[in-house]
Design a protein around this nucleic acid. Sequence first.
DNA 1: GATGAAATAGCATTTGC
DNA 2: GCAAATGCTATTTCATC
Lengths: 155, 155
Amino acid sequence: MAVRLDEIDLQLLTELQVDADRPNVELARLVGLSPAATLNRVRRLKEAGVITKIAARLDPGAAGFPLQVYVSVILARHEPRASKAFEDAVRAMPEVIAADWVAGEIDVMLLVVARDVAELQKVLTRLSTRGAQRLTTLLRLEELKPSSPLPVAAG
Amino acid sequence: MAVRLDEIDLQLLTELQVDADRPNVELARLVGLSPAATLNRVRRLKEAGVITKIAARLDPGAAGFPLQVYVSVILARHEPRASKAFEDAVRAMPEVIAADWVAGEIDVMLLVVARDVAELQKVLTRLSTRGAQRLTTLLRLEELKPSSPLPVAAG
DNA sequence: GATGAAATAGCATTTGC
DNA sequence: GCAAATGCTATTTCATC
């Protein structure tokens, strides 16, 4: 937190989450500011860490990864050392494209992509040998709701 | 699939997933093409649907959403009509920032953000009254591995 | 069929207000 | 935050491989 965001900042954040592939002048028009002021605000939002990055989103299937799975993990041991070892292992696995520590029935939620079942199995096996006691795999079938912007604008 | 991607395309995809906030001329230098050729390739990747969009990623906490939870859902009924009703309800809930149909122990995986516990409870209650038979909530504690690019480059 | 080089139009970015 | 000015970039065109 620690950052004050006014209405125009929220508007900028919404627009940039929807489509950051637009010229700054268009953004400026959308929020009713001059290009210079818009540029300054966006720069401030980046420096403040509210905007963490601007990145391309790919269609995993079109990019060669027909298998996408959520993998929930219960660790065998919960000591800091074991957790750190698991963390390092996960970070070194390129097929794991995101991972979060969570509180609830499980310890970690992973998002894994694979080119085929063999590759997926390789990943799951490696997770098992790196500290995972129990793995539950959920095959992503279809998008129910596309990745949406954080509802920053008063909703 | 259906799109042929050569080495340079893969390089472009990797770079754009890491940081799409760079001038085209810099991308061109990185992949060793002229700006014009680079622009053509990127445009093709967008039109082919490999790049779905270019968007800003926010820090949810910094943007005012200290609570982020994975919510797994088992539907009460699995007829198409019930599924569709649930889908419509989810799409109308701004706090649900992503949702996927999955195969496994559950039917749907949601990612929900909230400003406080009251808002989260409101969302969970609504999901229950819109077709969810069983909800399991996992509170996101900490990022274990940041959102990473699809490992498109031979790895 | 895609690339590279040159040219134009448009934008990003700075400065002064 | 704005307006004007500068320098650079995106984007097109066309010749080329």
